[in-house]
Design a protein around this nucleic acid. Structure first.
Lengths: 201, 201
DNA sequence: AGATCAACCAAGCAAGCGCTAGTGTAAACC
DNA sequence: GGTTTACACTAGCGCTTGCTTGGTTGATCT
């Protein structure tokens, strides 16, 4: 039994599991369904994962890790202004949602099915991500870009962004870039940002 | 077997079920757990509900119906200005969340566990509620209170509001009134609204 | 007094669940 | 050339699940 093994095979299986968890929900997804989707028998599954819980944890860890990496990268690449940084975060968030959609839906909806041990471990990752957001929102507040209660504003923004998994259609006309732009226009309407529309993917 | 019976007993059982569904999730809540919480045996449960699915549907219907009634009432009571109506909707939404919290959490997180039949029925209720929101947001857009894409703005607002179930603490210092006020200040900062702070519950 | 009825119980069935034990096999390594 | 390792298989154990069945109770109505 491989324990915390990070083989490419395991990554592929995790991706497939994420898809099934979104379709059926964690509890309704049986190990037999998972195995069939992976092209193996149910017993073989436990060669890659200690138990069913660990599959869920792997899915969520993968998604959150990617989001964190992407957000950090976006902040490094962009300018110093509060508006640019806010924009970069929103864009990164929505792009992650596009590419790792399944993992993020699972993270949002199946978080409570994690046992306390896995939850504690993954909380740190999630907190790190949310800390990035709060820092950027702090800068926007300090810079006078947006106004209001620090705690409430960051919750409202996170809510608006996370809710997008419910309705966003990647095939539709709106690009992540557009959503990020519109959101910031809504909460910081005084700014007439430079770039408009979706120039490129 | 009582079919679409609306006895007070059934309402009470529905309330208890909502609580358990929030604690454990729908799939992990067994009919035996439900029965024990209700002080009866698992077999007796099927005197009140056709099957487990119907309990879930009853919980969600109850919550959505209340939200709809409260929102309609709030719109009738308030003034005609776009700002007042927007404020009334936000306040009503958050108040419902306070009083019927369990039902709304279930509606948000367990919606996908409904079979297609129940989902079709409840979709109408939910759509009616969201239509109220979109109408009020339309008025706010027309009145120049807020700006942006009609579709996106209403999604962002709904997201910010629905996300509150994740973090809102009814025991904390912030009242629903305060949240509504802060949210509107965030998306329509030009307005200096008359009433400020939580004067009364 | 007899009938009706909602509400409940005891017992259990059939199916499905997560997971384990033991084995086979082909490639990789020393 | 023998050993190890990664990955898969078969078979099934022990338990829980949603739900059914047939029957009991106590209040209400005529």
């Amino acid at each position: 039994m491989n324990v915390v093994n990070e083989s490419p095979r395991r990554k592929e299986l995790t991706r497939l599991a994420a898809q099934l968890f979104v379709q059926e929900g964690f509890d309704r997804t049986t190990v037999r369904m998972l195995a069939q989707e992976m092209g193996i028998k149910s017993g073989s599954l436990f060669h890659h994962f200690r138990d069913k819980q660990e599959i869920l944890a792997a899915v969520i860890e993968e998604g959150t890790q990617n989001a964190l990496t992407l957000a950090r990268h976006a902040l490094e690449q962009c300018g110093d202004s509060a508006e640019e940084r806010l924009h970069a975060m929103a864009r990164a968030h929505l792009q992650t949602l596009l590419t790792d959609r399944n993992a993020h839906v699972v993270a949002l909806y199946e978080w409570r099915r994690l046992d306390s041990q896995a939850r504690a471990h993954l909380s740190h990752l999630r907190d790190a991500y949310e800390a990035l957001w709060e820092a950027v929102i702090d800068e926007a507040l300090d810079g006078g870009l947006i106004h209001g209660d620090r705690f409430l504003v960051s919750r409202f923004v996170m809510g608006a962004l996370n809710w997008t998994v419910r309705w966003y259609d990647p095939e539709g006309p709106r690009k992540p870039e557009d959503l990020a732009h519109e959101l910031i226009a809504m909460i910081a309407p005084s700014t007439q940002s430079a770039q408009v529309g979706s120039t490129k993917v």
